[in-house]
Amino acid sequence: MQFSTHTQGEFTVVAIGEARMDASVAPELKHSIAQLLADGVTRIVLDLSQVTFMDSSSLGALVSLLKMVGNRGDLIVAGAKGIVADLFKLTRMDRVFRMTESVDAATCAVAA
């Protein structure tokens, strides 16, 4: 699973670099971001703007990570569109995750 990280304000932005998040990469995604949390990162914006497909296994991995973050920080989902955004809506998990249209919207909204 390809992803890059950079710092934007108080946030670590994790940008998924692949078009597809599915059951074959969900465990690796979970492990990689869990490692960031273990390293002390607590405020994460997950940039899904390059992702064109996501299945429920990957959504489950994100919920697991949200639980790991708990009340200690943030896990904001940014840039979900098309069927990826639909997945959050159909499962009603858009009520659980903080979701923004873009990374900038995530960091600005929190900074404001």
């Binding site: 429920s56 489950g60 949200l66 009603r92 998990m93 009520r95 659980v96």
Partner: peptide, 10 residues
């Protein structure tokens, strides 16, 4: 959703 499920949506 409030149960924070990690699967069962398929």
């Amino acid at each position: 959703p409030e149960d924070l499920p990690e699967g069962g949506w398929g």
